[in-house]
Write a protein that binds this DNA or RNA. Structure first.
Lengths: 193, 193
DNA sequence: GCTCAATGTTTACGACGTTAACTTAAGCGC
DNA sequence: GCGCTTAAGTTAACGTCGTAAACATTGAGC
């Protein structure tokens, strides 16, 4: 796509960003949910080994995709809940957004769930890794909905809600459950924190 | 045409079975959740291309592992629920077994969830593919617990239960939720069909 | 204008999945 | 027993991959 942009220049403008975006594109268009480092480089108009100036290895590029994915997921959830004054409604909207994000970005979402832990550990914790932002949003919702509950009780609620939407998302992605918007509503709305 | 799985040992003994078992071993011992076809062959004491006498390609071997995995999962769930006369207790035991199976076979479970659909389509539907056996068990449980419910209502309950345990399993495997037996109990026992 | 670090390139290595052509041996009719 | 057929296994080869090493080009700052 941008392999023939106005750059006869030796240096690429922002190769790191281009690699992330092109890897993302390859990830979603390929059916296997994988991509080749060399093809990302090819698509970015750069030699295969140029990638190593920005990422120590393929895993690091994967981790960058995961961080990017969690940023977008948290954005989507926040946008879905924004403007809803009813806390329960906001909570449900956020849950629905979680599942819809997965359906809209299947390969990225799968990558995120399989590498969330490693990416969270790798990410610079300084400015608050985006990997943990979605989780903090969930915690805030539960705290608002169950103000009197103990920490342990809240933890169980958090895990229940998270497991429900995450499981629903994964099952729909895998084709084991039909990706019905109405079914998402029915499952999510029935959850009582 | 009938199944020809039984021991039709020519040279090796039962290479097909050996390949499946060795692939399973490699899958669980490797941290990446993947294995190389050549290494499976090596481990089985056979040349790399001998694999192709039993599986058309690597995906077919993956599919065989998925079928094997669902057999074991259904067995574990049935064993956990066996002897429990209380239907609700049996249902919960079955759910707990689902999560514990995932924790005990992380790589296999991940493979199963990412390839369940493809494997179910590939499997011979004649004698009831094992891929669908676990699902049938779940349907039976829900039917017994909600005898008066409509098909649509049962579907929602099935999806809720499945999503809950599946999500819990995946989150625990990913390290996003601590793999606590007590937490599993708390989450599963709280589910009211 | 020279130097230097950052950012690219070329070349190379071993491993991988898979194809093609060849070899071995088990079971069967004679 | 004796060949035939054919399933089950072999070696050799191709193109791709991730990655390491050595070299080339650039832009920024003294």
């Amino acid at each position: 796509m941008n392999a023939d942009e106005p750059r006869a220049a030796y240096h690429h403008g922002d190769l790191r960003r281009a690699l992330v975006l092109n890897a993302l594109a390859l990830l979603e268009q390929g059916s296997a949910g994988e991509f080749s480092l060399r093809e990302v480089a090819r698509l970015s108009g750069v030699s295969a080994t140029a990638v190593y100036r920005h990422f120590p290895d393929k895993d690091a590029l994967y981790a960058a995709l995961v961080v990017e994915g969690y940023e977008r997921l948290a954005d989507a959830q926040q946008a879905a809940a924004a403007g809803l004054s009813d806390r329960r409604a906001a909570f449900r909207a956020s849950g629905r957004a979680y599942v819809h994000f997965a359906l809209a970005n299947p390969a990225l979402f799968r990558l995120m769930s399989s590498r969330a832990h490693a990416a969270a550990a790798t990410a610079d914790a300084a400015d608050g890794a985006p990997v943990n932002r979605a989780k903090r949003l969930l915690l805030d919702h539960v705290a608002a909905l169950r103000p009197g509950a103990s920490t342990a009780e809240r933890t169980v609620t958090v895990v229940q809600a998270w497991a429900l939407v995450h499981g629903l998302a994964v099952l729909m992605l895998g084709g084991q459950v039909p990706p019905d918007a109405a079914l998402i509503d029915a499952v999510v709305d029935d959850f009582r924190p």
